[in-house]
Design a protein around this nucleic acid. Sequence first.
DNA 1: TCGTTTGCTTCGGTAGCCTAAGTAGTTCAT
DNA 2: ATGAACTACTTAGGCTACCGAAGCAAACGA
Lengths: 194, 194
Amino acid sequence: MSKNEHDKLSKAKQLQSTELSAILGRLDKKGARRLMERVDTSLIALRRILRATEMFGRDLAKAAGLTPAQFRVLQVISEKGWSTPKAIAQRMGVSQATMTALIDKLERKGMVTRQRSERDRRQTDIVITELGASAIDEAPDALQQIFVRRFEALEDWEQAQIIASLERVASMLDAHDIDAAPVLDWGDISGKPN
Amino acid sequence: MSKNEHDKLSKAKQLQSTELSAILGRLDKKGARRLMERVDTSLIALRRILRATEMFGRDLAKAAGLTPAQFRVLQVISEKGWSTPKAIAQRMGVSQATMTALIDKLERKGMVTRQRSERDRRQTDIVITELGASAIDEAPDALQQIFVRRFEALEDWEQAQIIASLERVASMLDAHDIDAAPVLDWGDISGKPN
DNA sequence: TCGTTTGCTTCGGTAGCCTAAGTAGTTCAT
DNA sequence: ATGAACTACTTAGGCTACCGAAGCAAACGA
């Protein structure tokens, strides 16, 4: 164990200090300090949420006899009852190759079936089976259950506030497509020739 | 339990309907309706947050020349400059074996070094190197940057509200240990003989 | 009709993760 | 102080997830 190494407390703070330096220039000491603390606090809370979700994902999947990834695929399919490999892959942000493998496994477990599309015979429709549907229905979505239960217990004003905040944060984060990775959700907007 | 109805939008709705039925019984029509909408909205926002984070995690790690998991390990170590495999494993919710493998890779890349602890020679201190520290510093933590930037732009009261809400949600979710997996964070509370 | 594009699969390879079984080092009761 | 029990870590073997490249068939375009 080394002594000089831990002369810095929170790395989190350092991480942001670079970030914040520009901002801080424009604020008085007190304001700067408060902002920093707040960002810290928020990020920590966010990490807790992320972590909790990740952990739950595992038990959930385990309980349903599926892996987390397989379960997510099944969830997506179950929205409409069917889908195509490409659509699911895009939605989950993985390659088609990966999707093929995941579907293989779900098919082997009898959760979905593949059938060539009538519309376009290059496509394959992935259709959820009875078994698959019930797997989804019966999956004890612990995270959701607990969240729902506790959310229900909150005061009215608090529920409203949480919603507003979550949506705020969500939009702060996922609007990144716009300024960081514009080429992500095109799809089929206009009949672009090129 | 309703299943394949809407061909669009929230899976969330379906998942919860089962969940909510019990709760709804105790509420008047209007209240029930509002609660449902609110839970939906919250869960959707939560998923957006989760998804955004996941995606960012990948680019981030890719940009730093590390995989997401490796990057997270490095982050944890960098908080204090050093740590032990066990501590990191616990914190990240993975097994020690997995941790060993991750550390192996970071060590091979020269990001951290292993050194036997003086305190207790069963332990190994994982110490971050210059290289590792700079990898963290220079990592374009897009998620964080964007979040920080936008957070800063908010009104004071709104920042405060978001913090309160995030912490609320975090505690609603990660307090699950208590009622779902009590055997997770024991640690060393009392000198339990058995 | 031929060349290109599209949707999917196959192949080979990397990473993350786990459990079980080791190997040192520590504690503690006898 | 010696051996059993425990602890921190590593090794070994085995899954799943994921990717890029290459292959194939259907669809499309001119």
